[in-house]
Design a protein around this nucleic acid. Structure first.
Length: 905
RNA sequence: GGGCGCAUAGCUCAGUUGGUUAGAGCGCCUCGCUUACACCGAGGAGGUCAGGGGUUCGAGUCCCUUUGCGCCCACCA
């Protein structure tokens, strides 16, 4: 026998690691046309994706699994299409997240970053990165990611740091960054500023506090004011009312007294105030509220800060100095109550700003920070999408993007952290000037003094990730990689970081490289649990991709993530689905076993020279090829329009239904029919199955690669060396050419129609058998009647029909016509065909009549529908081919109806 | 407050130039270990495509509208 005693069940565990190592070892992940190597051909088109760099501290989650599945599909497809495909991997230093991890570790040791100092802390963090940093990339490998690991990058690498420095200096020189005190979002726990995007708002139950702002110089007059944050009273610099509010007209311009502090502040009029909210009077705290800050600017109010970096009350708070912000709130309110200044409290739902990282409450505070002047950058970034240089998939995200870009505010880029790219600005203690430099200076650029000190802050992590598409390729150096691979092709990521990352890459790409960094943005949705709930540790509904891969295989997970999801839309993942796709991989494996078994039975060479004698190719063969052609065409169209899920579904359906359920069953029979038939069938099986493997490879790379190897070996051991669909057998499937569309040979439509009639016939017989409880093994004699032409066809399909429908081939009669119904039979009408099965004794005549009547009624209603349709404007206005199709349908129904009427007693 | 999306079988979802009998997986019911596969095969039940209106020869698909969900941005103290 053969060498191919493959196990009954596909063993993904034994396969995946071995296959991945084979790919990597052979360098298949590296672009085939490399500008750094001899023989480079600049005319070969590159296809490039830079990976969304996971946090170096990260653990694999389904978000990673999703992007790897999609991007690997894109890369594998283009690689097979002949592009010089490059997928640049790497990780992000993730400033806050990583720093927190190390700080936590230090805390456990009873130490802190302040205790060990900046230098030691950074050493410690690098050490930590060296230990844990490789984990996430190992996990990404497990997903089958065909990244070029020789080009792996890290945002704090020397090269990327140089890029960050260059970018900052350029912005500085163009006046696009500035430093100044502004109201920013302060994270007291992390003790750093964060950007607007890093603040999330959550609705929480809270209290609205009503109190009195006493008028200066009056005993009993006051303005009632409501606030959600009473402690900020300590930094109030005005009370504002609406200019047209009659209640408060008389107070405008007067002074009121800050509770407990006794400071006098003015009552001002501003249209910002809503008269019917709260009391219609608003306390103004420019130092701790963005709206108040603006009002303060308008009225030239002083800006007071009543909180320090740890959110403790400053000296400004008088008796409350040193208290933590919420303690201060409590104490101040209690004191005010005692002083008779409190009116009432009422429950109120607050929109609490919380840190995206730590989850603690963000405090708006005045602070000295660096900002990027965003308007000039945003303008270009907006235009790039509007003019089509960059396309977003799905397209409705373009509107979301416009909406954001048009309302964008300056970007706070400084962070009071240590882990990150240090801001390259030095301050001179002597002349007081600042200078920005590409190289660390040893003296002040203005006065030459050596008393200079670098800005202690680092840059927002997103500042460096914003440069990712070109910094990873060597920018600002003019490297061969940058020249050939940049701009990149697709940017694939989740829609949740469209603003954080994608928008910023576009702005920096346009600013620094004068090119859109990619031409297409593909946004995938978020993965939720099987009931559409967001996965979270607290809910306990988190699915760990590593466990899924262990239990059901990487291919199953990938296929599940890719199929049944639509770009930009969240999708629900259930293990049931993954299980179904594990079954799919197993089904493929078993189909492969059968194909291999069958091809080994094929004769060594075609019996007749050309192998082209008539009758070699069957209806099933023609059907299979016609379906494959449709599949190839559809797949191409769907890939071009980013509908990978639908493409995968189509391939799945073709394989399971057309190929496995129908063709393989028939192929088994054809292999026994004649040498030429067998030879031809084996050849077709190999071709079609091999094409299928290539189509499926971007979706399920492991199982297809493994099968490809076995198939190739089996073929090479057979004297006929059956060729694949196109070209020759590839060294490995990963570098095999993508299947080309096959030309129409004519007759495809006929083959499809004729075969589907055959399928209907088989189903009708099976159905009747099931209804009549005919024993599964029992072979029934049958008589089949049809026109002369089709009788010939069905005579050639006798074996297949008999085998699939459980008929006794030796007692299966196929006639062009029948004058009389055979005795003791029950009739089935399938389109133009009648079939008679000897089931009369098993049937109640009344039941039979009912069945036939029902079928006739159905046929008649279809006839009525079609007649009406064809009598309408449809006949004149619809495309001719369509009308013709409906006419044919009508004829078929008419013939069925006629026969059904004859069958009725 | 501004913007965007969704509503299709019991559940989770596909259905993209509108084409006339709306699909899949899971679940359910009946059979079946026929030499690729029980991680399987065969048959079956199950949908007025949220409601209403419009455009069209033709609408799950396009437009308007109602209802119900979800998301993003802004942040009225």
């Amino acid at each position: 026998m053969s060498n191919y005693e493959l196990p009954k069940t596909y063993d993904f565990k034994a396969t995946e690691e071995r296959i991945y190592a084979m790919w990597e070892k052979n360098g298949y992940f590296q672009p085939r046309n490399d500008p750094n190597k001899p023989g480079f051909d600049p005319t070969v088109k590159p296809f490039v994706i830079t990976i969304p760099p996971p946090n170096v501290t990260g653990e694999l989650h389904l978000g990673h699994a999703m992007f790897v599945s999609v991007e690997d599909l894109m890369v594998r497809y283009h690689r097979m299409k002949g592009y010089s495909a490059l997928w640049v991997p790497g990780t992000d230093h993730a400033g806050i997240a990583t720093q927190l991890m190390v700080e936590r570790q230090l805390a456990k040791e009873g130490s802190s970053r302040e205790a060990i100092g900046r230098e030691k802390f950074l050493e410690r963090t690098w050490q930590w990165k060296a230990e844990k940093g490789g984990k996430i990339t190992q996990q990404i490998r497990r997903l089958g990611a065909s990244c070029d690991w020789t080009r792996e990058r890290f945002t704090l690498d020397e090269g990327l740091s140089k890029a960050v420095r260059e970018a900052f200096v350029r912005l500085y020189e163009k006046g696009l960054v500035y430093r100044g005190p502004r109201l920013i979002n302060w994270s007291p726990g992390l003790k750093t500023a964060v950007s607007d995007l890093e603040v999330e708002y959550s609705e929480e139950p809270g209290t609205l506090y009503y109190f009195k702002y006493r008028l200066a110089g009056s005993q009993d007059e006051y303005i009632p004011v409501a606030t959600t944050r009473p402690e900020t009273i300590l930094a109030d610099t005005a009370v504002a009312v609406h200019p047209d509010d009659e209640r408060y007209q008389k107070f405008i311009g007067k002074k009121v007294i800050v509770p407990m502090l006794g400071r006098e502040i003015p009552v001002i009029a501003d249209e910002y105030v809503t008269r019917d909210f709260g009391t219609g009077a608003l306390k103004i705290t420019p130092g701790h509220d963005p709206n108040d800050y603006e009002i303060g600017q308008r009225h030239d109010l002083p800006v007071l800060s009543m909180l320090d970096k740890e959110a403790r009350v400053t000296a400004l708070g008088g008796a409350y100095a040193g208290l933590e912000r919420f303690e201060a709130r409590k104490k101040l309110w209690a004191d005010m109550k005692a002083a008779g200044l409190v009116i009432r409290e009422e429950p109120y739902t607050l929109n609490v700003p919380r840190s995206q990282r730590g989850g603690e409450i963000i405090e708006p505070m005045i602070s000295e920070q660096w900002f990027v002047k965003i308007a000039p950058l945003a303008e270009k970034a907006l235009a790039a999408v509007q003019n089509g240089d960059i396309k977003i998939v799905p397209d409705y995200f373009e509107k979301v993007y416009y909406n954001w870009m048009e309302n964008i505010k300056d970007w706070c880029i400084s962070r009071q952290l240590w882990w990150g790219h240090r801001i390259p600005v030095w301050y001179c203690a002597d002349c007081g000037q600042q200078s920005c430099a590409r190289q660390d200076p040893s003296a002040c650029a203005h006065c030459g003094s050596a008393h200079i000190q670098q800005d202690p802050d680092v840059l927002d992590t997103w500042f460096s990730s914003g440069l990712w598409p070109f910094s990873t390729l060597g920018w600002p150096e003019k490297t061969p990689d940058l020249g050939y691979f940049y701009p990149t092709s697709y940017m694939e990521t989740g829609y949740d970081i469209l603003f954080f990352w994608v928008a910023r890459m576009i702005m920096s790409g346009l600013e620094f490289t004068e090119a859109a960094p990619f031409h297409t943005i593909y946004l995938h949705g978020l993965i939720r649990d099987e009931h559409g709930q967001k996965m979270s540790k607290t809910k306990g509904n988190v699915i760990d991709p590593l466990i899924v891969m262990d239990e059901l295989g990487t291919d199953a997970l990938r296929f599940t993530l890719l199929v049944g999801s639509t770009p930009g839309k969240d999708s629900n993942l259930s293990l049931k689905k993954v299980e179904a796709n594990r079954n799919f991989a197993n089904k493929l494996w078993n189909a492969a076993r059968l194909v291999i078994t069958l091809l080994q039975k094929a004769p060594a060479a075609p019996p007749s020279p050309a192998g082209k004698e008539t009758g070699v190719s069957s209806l099933a063969d023609a059907f299979l090829l016609a379906r494959l052609k449709t599949l190839l065409r559809d797949t191409e169209r769907l890939f071009q329009t980013f509908q990978y899920g639908q493409a995968g579904q189509n391939i799945y359906d073709f394989f399971w239904n057309d190929f496995a359920d129908w063709y393989l069953e028939i192929a088994k029979l054809q292999m026994a029919q004649s040498d030429s038939r067998a030879f031809h069938t084996a050849g077709l099986l190999v071709q079609v199955f091999e094409t299928l493997l290539r189509l499926l490879h971007p979706f399920t790379p492991f199982v297809t690669e493994e099968i490809y190897g076995h198939l190739k070996n089996a073929v090479s051991q057979h004297p006929a060396h059956f060729p694949p669909q196109t070209g020759d057998w590839a060294e490995a499937l990963i570098i095999a050419p993508w299947p080309e569309s096959l030309p129409e040979a004519g007759g495809e439509e006929d083959a499809l129609r004729e075969f589907s009639l055959f399928q209907e016939l088989v189903r009708a017989i099976r159905n009747l058998r099931a209804e009549k409880n005919v024993k599964p093994g029992l072979k029934l004699p049958a008589t089949l009647a049809e026109g002369a032409e089709r009788a010939g066809l069905y005579n050639s399909l006798k074996t297949e029909l008999a085998a699939l429908a459980g008929l006794d081939e030796s007692r299966l009669t196929i006639l062009p016509a029948l004058t009389e119904k055979p005795a003791g039979t029950v009739a089935l009408v399938v389109g133009p065909i009648q079939i008679y099965l000897p089931l009369a004794e098993m049937s109640d005549p009344a039941e039979e009549r009912a069945r036939l009547t029902k079928e006739l009624a159905e046929a008649n209603s279809q006839i009525a529908r079609l007649e009406k349709l064809l009598a309408s404007d449809f006949a004149s206005k619809a495309p001719a081919a369509l009308v013709q199709k409906e006419r044919e349908k009508l004829e078929t129904y008419q013939r069925s109806a006629a026969q059904l009427r004859e069958q009725l007693p």
